[in-house]
Design a protein around this nucleic acid. Structure first.
Lengths: 224, 224
DNA sequence: CCTCCCTTCATAAAGATTAGATAAAATGGC
DNA sequence: GCCATTTTATCTAATCTTTATGAAGGGAGG
């Protein structure tokens, strides 16, 4: 089990780490917002313990980042302010639990364990859609149990279609999603053709024909 | 349980051996510093009973060797001098316990038992993953029973991949883990290429091909 | 001094992405 | 049904990015 603790107060950080080391967790730390974001870019943690007050910005921004990038890491917020506002903001942004300082480490431990139990009980770090099963942490997708070898764009594309199953998505929407922003940077949407083609081919190889359908004049639709 | 007794006084050596034989230990002996070092190069002992005054140099040198080579053998120092200086020097150099001559063998026995209990209570000191087996205390890894000769970084790298099996780890994550801190200190991530290459080669030599996979654009993954 | 290990660098190779040309398919009007 | 137009597919090759490789320099430790 892998933990990321984002906390700027060294003594608290140290005691948390020490405690969870004893609990056989692999622990990583971050002392600032940006360090935290760098780490979650690289890794999928089983649980993130996040302080709200951080040098460089609010921990809520990190939550926002996680949600925007559809990362499935579990998050427990710790904060000295136990105002209702923060709690609501945090939970709205997808935090899984909330703890106000000061707290006993055993209490934190119980929450982490509970979170991990929940997380893997319902398999929220994967996305299953009929015959397709995406594993977000490892950015892999299986079709009927078989691993599909996908490039970066192909993976993004397929996952985007999956999150929009049974809905038609335009090439522009696809391009903007893949490029993670408005369309200024995208010179032409034609390249989508190629990626769709390759994706269709790879799915066909695994016996998944016809699950990506072309809707003339509008875009593509993944239907199951 | 395997014991190494390093002591130059034959009568004391003999009685210690005899005692621990009765206690069902496997005992080896060394009468000098260099003999002792030769033996710990070849073996991992559960406990080393080390006299400080030795022909060929101080037992403290052996402790130094152990620590420099990250050997995990437990060490109990015995010495006629019970000066505070020696005790401190010994414990500073990583000895686990200290006993001044003369002592009762039952007392030594109790300390050895306690040390071994501590040592193995700390949790699994090995990590097994399919064909790979890492021994954390001695920082060695075997593939299919064959020892792989690894440099420090190679060991860290492989162990890191093992703790993240079936997950993709980025080069940045690897670098930060190896350097044990944020990336400021790491001049460039390129050196990972070299280490991955060497690691792959060494694994291949032992017949473990393809267990480290590169994931284009994301990093590396150890899969079993 | 020698050896081993780490790191960097330059260059090669592999892989992924995009542009462009052309073919095929769909649509709508006749 | 047939044609013109629009939209999508397919293919090739150019471009760009990422990774592999080998050689060389630097440093620590024996």
């Amino acid at each position: 089990m892998k933990l990321l603790v984002i906390e700027d107060e060294p003594s608290l950080l140290e005691s948390i780490i020490q405690y969870f080391h004893q609990e056989k967790f692999v622990c990583e730390t971050a002392g600032s917002l940006h360090e935290g974001i760098r780490k979650i870019e690289d890794f999928q943690y089983d649980c993130i313990i996040l302080d709200i007050n951080l040098p460089g910005g609010s921990g809520l921004q990190l939550l926002k980042y996680l949600r925007q990038n559809k990362k499935g890491d579990g998050v427990i917020i710790i904060s000295a302010r136990d105002s209702l506002d923060d709690r609501i903001a945090g939970l709205d942004l997808g935090a899984d639990d909330y703890l106000t300082k000061p707290f006993h480490l055993s209490e934190l431990n119980a929450r982490v364990k509970a979170l991990i139990r929940r997380k893997y009980a319902e398999g929220s770090s994967t996305m299953e859609l009929g015959i397709l099963k995406a594993d977000l942490p490892s950015r892999t997708i299986k079709a009927a149990g078989q691993q599909i070898s996908l490039s970066k764009i192909e993976y993004d594309l397929l996952l985007f279609l999956m999150t929009n199953k049974n809905r038609v998505v335009s090439r522009r929407a696809i391009a903007e999603h893949i490029y993670d922003g408005p369309s200024e940077q995208v010179p032409s949407f034609d390249f989508i053709y190629s990626h769709i083609k390759n994706l269709k081919r790879k799915l066909k190889e695994k016996g998944c024909n016809e699950i990506i359908q072309t809707v003339y004049g509008l875009g593509y639709k993944l239907s199951l």
